[in-house]
């Protein structure tokens, strides 16, 4: 990464995409092994591989509210 702060993208109807230096830990504070630089955290609750997204949000029809502000160019 560029050395800037970590960035989280809230993907519409999908996961939180995390880029940058963030430690992901389980409820007891133990680090969760991370296999790639950019990861997707499940926010629909339906994943079979928590905390990561496995695409199940599409199967369960997860919908996030549409933003009211116009999307960035």
């Amino acid at each position: 990464m560029s050395g800037g702060p970590a960035r989280v993208v809230a993907c519409p109807d999908g996961p939180l995409l995390v880029r940058g230096d963030v430690e992901v830990v389980d409820p007891d504070g133990r680090p969760v092994e991370r296999h790639r630089r950019t990861v997707a955290l499940c926010r629909c609750g339906a994943t079979g591989i928590p905390p990561w997204c496995d695409g199940s949000h599409k199967v369960v029809g997860y919908r996030t509210p549409r933003p009211e502000t116009p999307p960035a160019p």
Partner: peptide, 13 residues
């Protein structure tokens, strides 16, 4: 198994 996790990231990007 790798593709389940990786492609959930890749499809967004």
């Amino acid at each position: 198994d790798e593709h389940v996790e990786a492609d959930a990231v890749h499809e967004q990007i």
